[in-house]
Design a protein around this nucleic acid. Structure first.
Lengths: 145, 145
DNA sequence: GTGTAAATGAAATTCAATATCAATTATACC
DNA sequence: GGTATAATTGATATTGAATTTCATTTACAC
């Protein structure tokens, strides 16, 4: 099967990385969220189940999960690395409100075309992209005309 | 006239910020480069002329220059904030090689259209965007087939 | 089971970003 | 031009996330 857990196990085996109770729990908790979590936020969630887990363990596990292709880092420009897992998510981009900090996930298939065009022109092999639009969301617009 | 120096002076006046020898020099040195500089890199350049200038002064000046609309922050995902001035530059996006770290500036006017479409759909007022494509540049491709 | 190499968790370190504060300097007003 | 005062400067300290270190524990190949 192609469940995230199988993908993860296979990735670990293929790279000589051992399975561990902690890392499995971290992945499980991570997949159970639908948020963009920083390492510390995920650490705090995992600690509910494993009060003795160390921050470094969570920090390292997130890196492994990203390398396994199950998550990716997103950056909203506030100096904190956040991570979103890809289970049940298509790729998407973000509208980021510079007033309240909220972000909206958006899908824009046409951007793939732009990426291909640029890549071809520069003989560049693209692996991923980030497209972020900064501005004022409709709520913030309302309260400061 | 509309020279960067005039824009800067006007911005300062309009916002009750004083003119200073140091800040003027920082702007001058910054505009004289064509690179994406971190605050420390710019600091080291400015120090050639002003050996006694403090890092904090450069750091603060860069923020003011950005607020004046003369530069913007770019982020290549390495944890260091870099700045590029806009004098003689149109807006552009970046192809970033994940192997050698080099980046290519690209212009892609169609992306403005995408931004407008998304903004309209979500009633979002966009002020700027970042579009980054990560991948392997043609040089790195050559040396690792 | 046993040996060994990887993983863990606590703590220390690093480093950019940012804040603090006394001394200095630019500007508005006289 | 002189003066008051509020912003700027530069040295230094602080913050906070990211990352490293290392002794102990654990997974797993044999």
């Amino acid at each position: 099967m192609d469940s995230p857990n199988n993908v993860f196990t296979q990735y670990l085996k293929a790279n000589g990385i051992r399975q561990s109770t902690q890392r499995d729990s971290i992945l499980e908790v991570f997949l159970g969220t639908e948020k963009h979590l920083s390492a510390i936020e995920l650490y705090n969630l995992v600690r509910r189940r494993h009060p003795n887990i160390g921050y470094a363990t969570v920090y390292r596990a997130v890196k492994v999960i990203c390398n396994a292709g199950l998550a990716e880092e997103v950056d909203f420009g506030d100096g904190v690395a956040r991570f979103e897992h890809k289970y049940g998510h298509e790729h998407h981009d973000h509208l980021i409100c510079t007033k309240c900090g909220k972000f909206i996930e958006v899908r824009q298939p046409n951007i793939e075309k732009l990426q291909e065009d640029l890549a071809k022109e520069y003989r560049f092999i693209p692996t991923r992209h980030k497209f972020q639009i900064f501005g004022i969301c409709k709520n913030c617009k309302k309260y400061s005309p």
